Amino acid sequence: FDTSSAGHIQAGDEPEESAIRELYEELGIQASKEELQFAGCFDIQYEKEFHGKMFRDNEVAFVYMYTKPVDVAKLILQKEEVESVEWFDMEELDAALQPPRDQRFCVPMEGFQIAKQWLESRK
C-alpha cells in the first residue's frame, strides 16, 4: 500500500494544482483549492542499483490533506495506477511503519509523519 494519491508536478504547474489533478486522475475526486490544506513537504533522496545501473531519485514531496468525507464505493480508480483503496487506522499504520517495517506498506515515513502531525494539531 502506498500514498492514496501522488504524482509529479508538471512544468509550469504549482504543487497544489498537481495535487488536485492527481486526486482526480487516480481516485476520481474533484477537489477545489479550498478543499485541500497544505500539511508540509519533505525531501526524497534515494539511490539504488537496478539492472546494473544506478537509479537516483532526488525530489521534494508536498503533502496536502483532503478532509471531506469519501465513499470508497464511489471512487473511480485509475486502473493503470491504483489497484484498490483501503482505509487504515492511523495508529495501526504508525505501528506498521516502524522497524521492522510491515512490507505491505511503501508509504514514505516522512510523509506519514507530516500527515499525522497535521491531524494531531487539529484535535
Rank of each mutant, 00 (worst) to 15 (best):
D57R: 14
R56K: 10
E83L: 08
V70M: 07
E80K: 07
I20G: 01
S18H: 03
F50K: 10
E35C: 04
K33S: 09
Y46A: 09
Y64L: 12
K74W: 01
E83Q: 15
E35P: 07
A39R: 04
Y24N: 14
E22P: 06
L36W: 03
A31V: 10
F62E: 03
M65P: 10
Y46N: 09
M54K: 10
E17S: 10
K53D: 15
E49T: 13
E92I: 07
F62D: 07
P69E: 00
E83M: 08
S18I: 14
K68E: 09
Q30M: 09
K79I: 14
H51L: 13
L77G: 04
F55G: 14
V63H: 00
M90N: 01
C41A: 08
V82Q: 03
E16M: 05
K68D: 06
P69T: 02
S84Y: 09
A61W: 07
E47W: 01
Q30K: 06
E34Q: 05
A31F: 01
I20Q: 04
D57M: 14
R21L: 01
L93Y: 03
E47T: 14
S32G: 15
E35D: 13
E25W: 05
M65A: 15
K68I: 04
E80A: 10
E59P: 04
W87N: 12
G28E: 07
S32L: 02
K53Y: 15
E34M: 04
A73K: 11
F50G: 10
M65V: 15
Q30Y: 08
M54A: 02
R56V: 15
V72D: 10
F55E: 15
W87L: 09
Q78A: 06
D43T: 11
L27C: 06
F42M: 03
I76T: 14
D89F: 02
P15G: 08
E16H: 04
H51P: 03
D57Q: 15
W87K: 03
A39S: 03
S18P: 11
E92F: 00
E22N: 04
F62S: 12
F42C: 12
F50A: 07
K79F: 06
Y24P: 08
V82W: 00
F62W: 13
K33E: 12
F55W: 11
S84P: 02
N58F: 13
I44L: 04
I76R: 11
I76M: 11
K48A: 14
S84Q: 07
E35Y: 02
N58Q: 13
E86K: 13
P69L: 01
K53C: 09
I20T: 07
E34F: 01
V60T: 14
E86P: 09
Y46R: 12
Y24Q: 11
H51Q: 09
K79G: 13
V70W: 04
M90S: 02
I44T: 13
E26G: 11
K33C: 02
E16W: 03
M65Q: 11
L77K: 12
S18A: 15
Q37L: 05
T67F: 00
S84L: 08
Q37M: 08
K48L: 02
I76D: 12
G28K: 02
E59M: 03
K48G: 06
Q45C: 01
E49N: 11
K68P: 04
G52M: 03
F50V: 15
K48R: 07
T67M: 05
W87S: 06
L75G: 06
Y64F: 11
E35H: 00
M65H: 10
E34H: 05
